[in-house]
């Protein structure tokens, strides 16, 4: 597909838009639509917007109230997290984003990076939750961006070994193992994420002995990991299938055991081939985390919504709040998607 795009020369804009009567009609219709929709939108977003001031200043104008986002920024970004300890949440943001940034450099992909991720996630949980010298903050108080990041990255990392195991099991010649893997993958892929989330938060506690309780955040993270693992496993399976059979044979001819061959020969090639799909999946996870609002957790989106309905001085600025949250999600997802395109080109064998 990429090769095809490289070969074909781009068509000049004017010719593309007005090359034929059909093209011209469509172009004019779209231009009309833009002319109708965009000016009011820009007025609302920019020209009539209130950038600083109070809620009353905003009510006096017809545009968006960005002063609201300014005033409630900390709540949107941190949710219920105690203000005095805000630095801990920001540190988690910084730590996880730095790790994510480091992971974009293929040269740094190593066992060390994996260890850094595991250490980084544990440190994040410690920073957010406290203990070992920091005051304890229970997970029902966690919120905003740290929750979104921790859920996305944490469940991605947790699901990775599970997904490899599932993918291998599904390709295994041991019938029992294969059936279990197929059943797991198909059941999880056959139900919506909300159902898995409900099962984890509502059904699971009923199975525990009374009195025993597992943290809601942990249950949500586990649900997300299980859900992601099923999709992840299918991506990895596709990668495994792409590895030529000769590679397996060559590995065993060299006297490598099954596990050695897998670790040194097969998996590196298989994973490399599916990296773009994995990045797509990661974007999907990032957006799926917003569903935890259903079980009463304050991820970034829910914190943004709550910011507009909690403070009596700033009631009802939902549109501004959602636009801001959308912007944050867009920045993350768009960067990830551009990165995935770059990576695709970068990793293509020369």
């Amino acid at each position: 597909m990429i090769a095809h795009r490289r070969l074909s020369r781009p068509i000049p804009l004017f010719k593309a838009a007005f090359g034929s009567p059909g093209h011209a009609a469509v172009s004019l219709a779209l231009a009309g639509l833009v002319a109708v929709a965009v000016p009011p939108l820009l007025n609302w977003l920019l020209f009539d917007a209130t950038w600083v001031g109070t809620a009353d200043d905003c009510h006096g104008r017809s545009g968006a109230c960005w002063a609201f986002v300014g005033a409630k920024l900390q709540f949107v970004l941190l949710g219920l997290y105690p203000q005095g300890d805000a630095w801990r949440a920001y540190a988690v943001d910084g730590l996880l984003l730095a790790l994510a940034a480091a992971s974009t450099v293929p040269r740094l992909w190593s066992r060390g990076l994996l260890a850094a991720w595991i250490g980084g996630l544990l440190a994040s949980i410690w920073l957010l939750g406290g203990g070992l010298g920091l005051p304890q903050i229970t997970s029902d108080k966690w919120g905003g961006l740290p929750v979104t990041l921790l859920l996305s990255f944490g469940s991605f990392l947790l699901s990775f070994p599970l997904a490899i195991a599932l993918a291998l099991a599904r390709r295994s010649r041991m019938g029992g193992l294969r059936i279990y893997a197929v059943a797991f993958i198909e059941v999880v892929r056959g139900v919506p994420f909300i159902a898995v989330l409900y099962a984890a938060t509502l059904l699971f506690p009923l199975m525990l002995p009374s009195g025993a309780a597992i943290d809601k955040f942990a249950r949500a993270a586990a649900a997300l990991s299980i859900f992601v693992a099923a999709y992840f496993a299918e991506i990895i399976r596709a990668g495994l299938q792409g590895v030529p059979h000769g590679q397996y044979e060559a590995a065993s001819a060299l006297g490598l055991t099954y596990w050695q061959a897998l670790r040194l020969i097969v998996l590196p090639q298989a994973l490399r081939a599916v990296i773009p799909s994995i990045v797509n999946l990661a974007i999907g996870i990032f957006q799926d985390t917003t569903l935890v609002a259903i079980i009463g957790m304050f991820d970034l989106l829910n914190a943004a919504r709550t910011a507009a309905s909690a403070d009596q001085a700033w009631l009802g600025f939902y549109a501004e709040s959602y636009v801001f949250a959308a912007l944050v999600y867009f920045v993350f997802c768009f960067s990830a998607s551009r990165y995935s395109l770059w990576l695709e080109r970068h990793l293509r064998p020369a």
Binding site: T138, T201, L202, I294, G296, M297
Partner: peptide, 19 residues
């Protein structure tokens, strides 16, 4: 007392489940 936020969709099942 500890307050837990719950959405209208899950509040009654959550009460049932002992949340």
């Amino acid at each position: 007392v500890e307050f837990t936020s719950s959405s209208p969709q899950q509040r009654l099942p959550a009460l049932q489940a002992g949340e």
